[in-house]
Design a protein around this nucleic acid. Sequence first.
DNA 1: TTTTTTTGGTGAAAAATTTCACAAAAATCA
DNA 2: TGATTTTTGTGAAATTTTTCACCAAAAAAA
Lengths: 204, 204
Amino acid sequence: MDLSNNTIERLCRIFGHLGAIEKTGVEFVSSAELAGALGATSYTVRKDLSLLGITGFTRKGYEVSSLKKELGSKLRLAGRRKACIVGLGRLGSALLDYEKFQEDGFEIVAGFDRSVNKLERIRTHIEVYPVGSMKDVIKEKGIEMGIITVPGEHAQEVADRLTGCGVRGILNFSPVEVSVPDKVVSVNMDFTNALRFIAAKLGG
Amino acid sequence: MDLSNNTIERLCRIFGHLGAIEKTGVEFVSSAELAGALGATSYTVRKDLSLLGITGFTRKGYEVSSLKKELGSKLRLAGRRKACIVGLGRLGSALLDYEKFQEDGFEIVAGFDRSVNKLERIRTHIEVYPVGSMKDVIKEKGIEMGIITVPGEHAQEVADRLTGCGVRGILNFSPVEVSVPDKVVSVNMDFTNALRFIAAKLGG
DNA sequence: TTTTTTTGGTGAAAAATTTCACAAAAATCA
DNA sequence: TGATTTTTGTGAAATTTTTCACCAAAAAAA
Ligand SMILES: NC(=O)c1ccc[n+]([C@@H]2O[C@H](COP(=O)([O-])OP(=O)(O)OC[C@H]3O[C@@H](n4cnc5c(N)ncnc54)[C@H](O)[C@@H]3O)[C@@H](O)[C@H]2O)c1
Ligand SMILES: NC(=O)c1ccc[n+]([C@@H]2O[C@H](COP(=O)([O-])OP(=O)(O)OC[C@H]3O[C@@H](n4cnc5c(N)ncnc54)[C@H](O)[C@@H]3O)[C@@H](O)[C@H]2O)c1
């Protein structure tokens, strides 16, 4: 099964949205409702789901809890994944303590910084380490994903280090696009570029 | 001229990358180099630029400074834009003091929170206000863009308020997709979904 | 000077993605 | 019961996006 990035992204959002629906106690959701919450069309939602072999019920829609379960297992979002954060400045330390990642199965189990000063000062219940111990900590804790929150100048160097330690997924918050080996999945979240995009769409 | 979102997004990234090249003093850049830095192909870069009527020089590429200038004016990224942040918690207050937005022409000129406590405690040189004064402040300062960093439950309400005050661009950091009037541009940055996407791509 | 190489520009082809159209199934209604 | 409505599932059509092929221009090399 070979899903496009667009499809994967939408399915992940559906998965997230199902969590919210679940809390309301609603049992069934139609493709049109999902589409509305996603900014997509009902066709697209149905097609995306059918690509995974997921089917709903005529005249009822999809059963919320079983859809969530199926998506979770088909997209491998059900298990727990361990992640670390490199760069414990303003942004990195905010992320370090964001409890909601836990709820979604993402466990931030370590923070790294090259400044001993930062490490000493930081107040968190998550263990923090100097970058030197990255290899050991990542191996030992079985960390799969790395979050980069260092200045752009150091982003590539950190990405190299992370992939060198066996990390296969990278979420990069620096404005510099990092290049990674083929097998590694990397996503860039460039806030400034998001603002540029908005400005460009606004025009005038 | 009707550019696709993909094209606009790439052009914005090129614009950002040109800033970095400019600092190195390099005068010309080829479509292949830009493509490399972007994770695109040289065809796409050339086509994107040509859609804007931007042309380069045979055997030299594009002149960095004039390309930046042209992109800036064609995409309206050259001027200064004023933005505000609503929700001054962990993330919002980190964004409030992120100086680099300034360098790119985005001026964060106000912060809003509904908690008086937060407002009193926050240490920043940017003016902060209770949400009640949003309308006045936005009008008075000419704020065009709003950044939402409140909990998901309040995101839609804040988006409504912002658009009600005339804000036309929204960058939403909450995990809840907000719906806005047609004329308003909104971008969602859902970190958890980015992690989900990575996890789904990783598989196993 | 002539040839070769590099790089951009662009219409056409190919590929990918989205939308559509409609059959089928089930709930609702008359 | 039988007609009607609603909603899924999906192959086909339409649209969009990307890639390709190849020409022209200019620099470099011969
Ligand atoms: N803070 C924001 O609101 C914000 C907004 C948009 C983008 N960003 C981006 O996020 C990244 C982090 O921003 P920030 O404001 O938190 O920066 P910051 O300067 O506050 O923190 C950066 C941290 O990274 C550490 N560091 C630097 N080089 C390192 C290395 N090689 N290995 C390990 N640690 C290293 C520093 O010691 C510091 O603690 C930057 O790339 C920035 O552009 C931040
Ligand atoms: N902190 C993170 O690292 C992080 C990571 C991922 C996503 N997010 C998302 O970003 C958003 C902010 O996260 P946070 O951790 O900074 O939250 P937070 O709880 O620290 O801060 C939220 C702030 O919003 C204010 N607020 C609440 N309702 C409001 C309203 N209606 N109008 C104005 N202000 C209001 C609160 O007073 C508070 O100061 C959330 O949606 C969260 O899911 C945060």
